[in-house]
Computed example of a mutant assay.
Amino acid sequence: MPDLDIPDDLVRAKADFLATEARLDALGREQPPSRQIAAGEAEPTPEQQAAWDEAWARLQALTTEIQTHTWWAGVDNVPEARAALMAAAKERVAQG
C-alpha cells in the first residue's frame, strides 16, 4: 500500500468512527434482543436509548466528515485510499 499522506484529521475521524462503531456494538449487546423489542415484549431503558441515540448521531456525523473531506478530491485510487485510511485508523486505535 503506497504512502498516501492522509491528513491527520481524517485519520482521527476514521479512528473515532471505529471507536463509536464498537460502542454501538457494545450498547446493542446491553439492550434486550431486537426480536423482543419488535414484538413489544421488551424495550430499552430511557438511559440505554439515550446512549444509543447519542452514539448513532456521532457515527452519522463522523460518516459525513469522512466522506466529504477535501482530501478525497485529490485521490486517484479511491479503494486503495480507503484501505490505507482504514489501516492508519486501526493503527491509531491500537496505539490508544
Rank of each mutant, 00 (worst) to 15 (best):
Asp3Pro: 04
Asp3Phe: 14
Asp5Pro: 06
Ile6Gly: 08
Pro7Tyr: 09
Pro7Met: 11
Pro7Ala: 12
Asp8Pro: 07
Asp8Ser: 14
Asp9Phe: 07
Asp9Ile: 02
Leu10Pro: 09
Val11Gln: 05
Val11Asp: 07
Arg12Glu: 14
Ala13Tyr: 06
Ala13Thr: 04
Asp16Thr: 04
Asp16Leu: 13
Asp16Val: 00
Asp16Phe: 08
Thr20Phe: 06
Thr20Cys: 12
Thr20Pro: 07
Thr20Trp: 04
Leu24Gly: 00
Leu24Pro: 05
Ala26Lys: 00
Ala26Phe: 01
Ala26Trp: 02
Leu27Thr: 09
Leu27Ile: 12
Gly28Ile: 03
Gly28Glu: 07
Gly28Arg: 09
Gln31Leu: 08
Pro32Asp: 14
Pro32Met: 09
Pro33Val: 12
Pro33Tyr: 09
Ser34Pro: 08
Ser34Asp: 15
Arg35Ile: 15
Gln36His: 10
Ile37Glu: 05
Ala38His: 12
Ala38Trp: 05
Ala39Val: 06
Ala39Leu: 14
Gly40Ser: 05
Gly40Ala: 02
Glu41Lys: 02
Glu41Ile: 01
Glu41Ala: 12
Ala42Thr: 01
Glu43Val: 03
Glu43Gln: 11
Glu43Ser: 13
Pro44Trp: 02
Pro44Arg: 12
Pro46Cys: 08
Pro46Met: 07
Pro46Asn: 10
Glu47Met: 05
Glu47Gln: 10
Gln48Tyr: 05
Ala50Glu: 05
Ala50Asp: 04
Ala50Cys: 02
Trp52Leu: 06
Trp52His: 03
Trp52Gly: 00
Asp53Phe: 10
Asp53His: 10
Glu54Ile: 02
Ala55Val: 02
Ala55Gln: 01
Arg58Thr: 01
Arg58Met: 04
Leu59Thr: 00
Leu59Lys: 10
Leu59Ser: 12
Ala61Asp: 15
Ala61Met: 02
Leu62Ile: 10
Thr64Gly: 04
Glu65Cys: 03
Ile66Leu: 07
Gln67Met: 08
Thr68Gly: 07
Thr70Trp: 01
Thr70Glu: 07
Thr70Gly: 15
Trp72Cys: 11
Ala73Tyr: 06
Ala73Asn: 10
Gly74Ser: 05
Val75Asp: 10
Asn77Gln: 08
Asn77Asp: 13
Val78Glu: 01
Val78Trp: 04
Val78Asn: 01
Pro79Thr: 01
Pro79Glu: 03
Ala81Gly: 11
Ala83Glu: 12
Ala84His: 06
Leu85Val: 09
Leu85Asp: 04
Leu85Ser: 13
Met86Gly: 07
Ala88Arg: 12
Ala89Pro: 15
Ala89Ser: 11
Ala89Leu: 06
Lys90Ala: 10
Lys90Thr: 13
Lys90Trp: 05
Glu91Ala: 15
Arg92Ala: 13
Arg92Thr: 13
Val93Ala: 13
Val93Arg: 09
